[in-house]
Amino acid sequence: MGDDLEARLAERLAGLRAEHGWSLDDLATRAEVSRSTLSRLERGEISPTAALLGRLCAAYGIPMSRLLAQVEPEPPQLVRAGQQPVWRDRATGFTRRSVSPPHPGLRGEVVEAVLEPGADIGYEQPPVAGLEHHLWVLDGALELTVGGTAHAVGAGDCLRYRLWGPSRFVNPGPGPVRYVLLIVLP
């Protein structure tokens, strides 16, 4: 994520908290994130990890893609490959490309993701209860746990599920896993 995008994300996160009328302590309690981390994040002093953004999105009740879309300009109907926003969480080895940037008036979007070998990302709760995912693995293998049920998803496989509780994405290796995620709001 570019510096300009990170600055807009920091500003948007501060704005969301203000819109909800929450103090840093209120948000820290709701998202189970330290007050100091939230403060540094909102000031743009640190870059968020996927897990941290997941916690914040769950607290605000919005999918991560919607949050990221709010800091991007209005998406055009045709999005060329070189113009698709890419976000990287270097700490966890997660790369996310918004193939079809979300739009407030639409319910679905397409995301391409890559997890490096050994990547392990857990989300304690969905950003929106009942969020529907269609996960299609293009290359590699993914271990996905949704609501306590583990799934081994290999190249060419597609898993459809709804998010009601925790989820965990693990790349057991040896190479990266690349997948497409179709996200549909309930």
Rank of each mutant, 00 (worst) to 15 (best):
A31P: 06
T37N: 05
P48H: 08
P48A: 15
V71T: 15
S39A: 15
R80W: 03
T37F: 11
T49S: 15
D89M: 05
F94R: 09
R90F: 06
L38T: 10
S98A: 15
L67A: 02
R40N: 11
L78E: 06
M64D: 00
E74K: 13
E45L: 15
I46E: 01
R96A: 01
G54E: 06
L38S: 09
R55T: 10
D89V: 10
P85E: 06
L41N: 03
A91G: 04
R35K: 15
T92E: 10
A59W: 03
P101W: 09
P48M: 09
A28L: 05
A81S: 11
P63Y: 04
R97S: 07
A50H: 04
D89H: 04
R66W: 14
P73Y: 02
V99Y: 00
R96I: 03
V86A: 08
C57W: 06
Q77H: 12
L56Q: 02
G61V: 12
P85V: 10
E74A: 15
R90K: 02
L56V: 15
P101M: 07
Q70G: 10
L41Y: 06
A91H: 12
E42N: 07
L52F: 05
L67I: 07
C57I: 08
T37I: 09
A81I: 13
R90S: 12
L78F: 14
E42R: 03
T49L: 07
F94A: 06
T92D: 10
E45Q: 14
D89L: 09
T37D: 00
E45H: 05
R40W: 02
V71Q: 04
Q84K: 08
G93F: 12
E42I: 12
E42W: 07
A58N: 09
R80H: 13
Q70P: 00
D89Y: 04
V71K: 05
A59R: 06
G44L: 08
P101G: 08
R88C: 11
G44D: 01
Q83S: 14
A51K: 11
Q70E: 14
S47W: 06
V99E: 00
L67W: 01
R66Q: 14
A69D: 01
S34N: 06
P85C: 08
Q83C: 06
P73M: 03
A51D: 14
S100A: 15
T37L: 14
R66D: 13
L56P: 03
P48K: 08
F94G: 00
Q77W: 07
V33K: 00
E74T: 14
S100L: 15
G82V: 14
R30I: 11
